[in-house]
């Protein structure tokens, strides 16, 4: 088995979209991320797996500088997106977050209409010159979020009135509407039932054509289903990073093997 070259694996684009070097994160005195190096490719789904508290969500939140909103959090090291250091003082974190969209663990639609939820980002960033253009952006985002057919007749209904799965797809559409280049997803299916999970996973697979997607997940099956590359975190260390097929069939590190076979975590 081990001798067979893995030709079946999806060809990975050679360009690196996100490149992290020597990233350290501290919460007060707690060293949460220890010297992580990772290269994330464009138009690929990269999964971060690992036991609870291993730092995978923390690392994800470094990529769009969401950790800046937490007072006690310090980030060291270098994270480049398209060769540009996002922790450079010249970089505006607000602009960065428009380029790096994020979807959260729990669906968090704003208490506004479905339309206003999706139009929120474009309105803030002035992406539309007039109402017709805004309508177009909203429709496109909702279509890409695979929810257009369900909500097209009730765009003015409150977003909080949708089901959990619909809310999460609405949040994905909301993130897409600002035309990000990278989409970060922090356990996007953990609050959803299996049917809604399947819909969102299908959507993630489609999103790969346009975006670089990074997903944090607790479900190893989900990581295996949706991702091309997988990173395994343990106790703040990046233990192993490689093609998903390889991580799940022939892991190099014994800790990875223990985790995916259910012995730790």
């Amino acid at each position: 088995m081990q001798d067979i070259p893995q030709t079946s694996e999806a060809p990975v684009a050679s360009t690196s979209k996100i490149s992290a070097k020597g990233v350290q994160v501290y919460y007060g005195d707690n060293h949460a991320i220890k010297d992580v190096d990772v290269e994330i490719e464009d138009k690929t789904v990269t999964a971060f797996i690992g036991p609870s508290g291993c730092g995978k969500s923390t690392f994800l939140r470094c990529i769009n500088r969401m950790n800046d909103t937490i007072d006690i959090c310090r980030v060291q090291g270098q994270i480049l997106i398209d060769g540009e250091d996002i922790y450079d003082p010249a970089v505006d974190p607000v602009q960065l977050r428009a380029k790096v969209g994020m979807v959260f663990q729990k669906p968090n639609p704003f208490p506004k209409s479905i339309y206003d939820n999706v139009a929120y980002g474009p309105r803030i960033h002035g992406l539309a010159r007039n109402k017709a253009e805004l309508d177009e952006i909203v429709e496109k985002a909702l279509r890409r979020g695979a929810i257009w057919n369900e909500v097209k007749d009730r765009l003015q209904a409150p977003g909080t009135g949708l089901s959990g799965g619909q809310q999460q797809r609405l949040c994905i559409a909301r993130a897409i509407a600002t035309e990000p280049e990278v989409l970060l997803m922090d356990e996007p299916c953990s609050a959803l039932d299996p049917i809604a999970t399947a819909q969102v996973e299908e959507l993630i697979d489609e999103l790969r054509q346009n975006y670089s997607v990074v997903i944090v997940t607790h479900s190893m099956q989900q990581a295996a289903r949706v991702s091309q590359r997988t990173a395994f975190f343990h106790l703040g260390n990046l233990v192993e990073f490689g093609d998903t097929d390889k991580i799940f069939t022939t892991p190099e590190d014994p800790r990875t093997e223990s985790y995916i076979t259910g012995r730790i975590g």
Binding site: R97, N108, P109, F110, Y120
Partner: peptide, 26 residues
């Protein structure tokens, strides 16, 4: 809820935009 603020910051809103458009209406 903090999740609403996170959602707004995650879309590239500034704190005052978040307050005006999300926190105060809620």
């Amino acid at each position: 809820p903090q999740s609403l603020r996170d959602g707004s910051y995650g879309l590239g809103a500034t704190p005052s935009e978040t307050i005006r458009n999300v926190v105060l209406p809620a």
